[in-house]
Design a protein around this nucleic acid. Structure first.
Lengths: 168, 168
DNA sequence: TCGAAGTTGTTGACGTGTCATCATAACTCA
DNA sequence: TGAGTTATGATGACACGTCAACAACTTCGA
């Protein structure tokens, strides 16, 4: 993926975008990919789970009564129902979560952590935030944080996506 | 994927990362995803190709003699050989590129654009850069561009990944 | 209360990315 | 020159994401 243009040539002739702006764009895309890849690798290595697993399990862990209906879980982490359903199928197969019958709604079910899932999550939580800090947050100057926060929320706004920080 | 924690609660108790920094991280990840998704959607709609297709074809288009060995192509766009091989298999099936025998190295082959591939690429180039500008570059203030450029190249440096801009 | 409409969730098909493995060809150097 | 090493590239197995279709259940209005 990545809108990787793979060269540093003269896009300007076709696009009105100069070299510096292309470099900015390419690096901006690239840094995300590399960060996600590295964080995923560490999560996998240290806790044996993917980022998807982590998000799902954290949402369950934080839920009242440690359980959620798939739809509520999907809302919590911003996933489509189909994606979540496939993910849950795989996680059940790997013993990280279980589905339980739902008494009040015959269509639905509850999703709950297994003992193994809970153990993997706790291990992951210990390290993941620390990695995000050391690979990203700790490398930014205060004014850079401000600039990135402003810029990203403005772009998200333009895209019609919700921002944590609110539009600039 | 996305390191989506799915909630805005008190991560600080587990991570030493405050609310504002979490919001920054979440938005930073999010904006990439949304940008990639939107650009992909437009590329697909306007030219019938994916971002992967686009990157591959642009590299071929820019190459001397309009052809590359798979390994050189992989280097150009930063892809692993296996990923590229699968991608090329699919693109051949869709008629966007062809493989040709390589005389000088019995193991390898050349990858070349087909007429259809070239046509799709030209159509895509007309619009893609404009979209990147309108969805991203045009929304940034000069000082924000500087801050993002500095920060991303520093993070890439930390990750051991090459940066277009050079480390800060 | 009954039927249409909406909700919940699963499934299959397909494109995509990674890893491990393999076959083949090229290189290296004793 | 020939055996071991390295490079090129394809492949199969599997994880993941999206879309469209579907089944099952609930809700709501006449």
């Amino acid at each position: 993926m990545s809108t990787n243009f793979g060269y540093a040539g003269n896009m300007s002739e076709v696009s009105e975008i100069d070299e510096a702006e292309w470099a900015l764009w390419v690096d901006f895309v690239r840094v995300q990919q590399e960060l996600a890849r590295e964080l995923d690798r560490r999560l996998q290595r240290d806790a044996g789970i993917s980022q998807g697993d982590y998000g799902v399990m954290l949402a369950l862990f934080e839920a009242p009564d440690r359980r959620l209906r798939p739809s509520a879980l999907g809302d919590a982490i911003g996933w489509e129902k189909s994606r979540l359903s496939h993910q849950l199928t795989r996680m059940v197969a790997r013993g990280l979560v279980e589905r339980e019958e739902c008494d009040t709604d015959g269509r639905g079910s509850w999703v709950v952590l297994t003992r193994d899932g809970r153990r993997a999550l706790l291990r992951a939580m210990r390290d993941h935030a620390r990695d995000i800090r050391s690979l990203f947050l700790d490398l930014l100057e205060p004014d850079e944080k401000r600039a990135i926060a402003d810029a990203t929320s403005r772009v998200l706004d333009r895209l019609g996506a919700p921002s944590r920080l609110g539009a600039a």
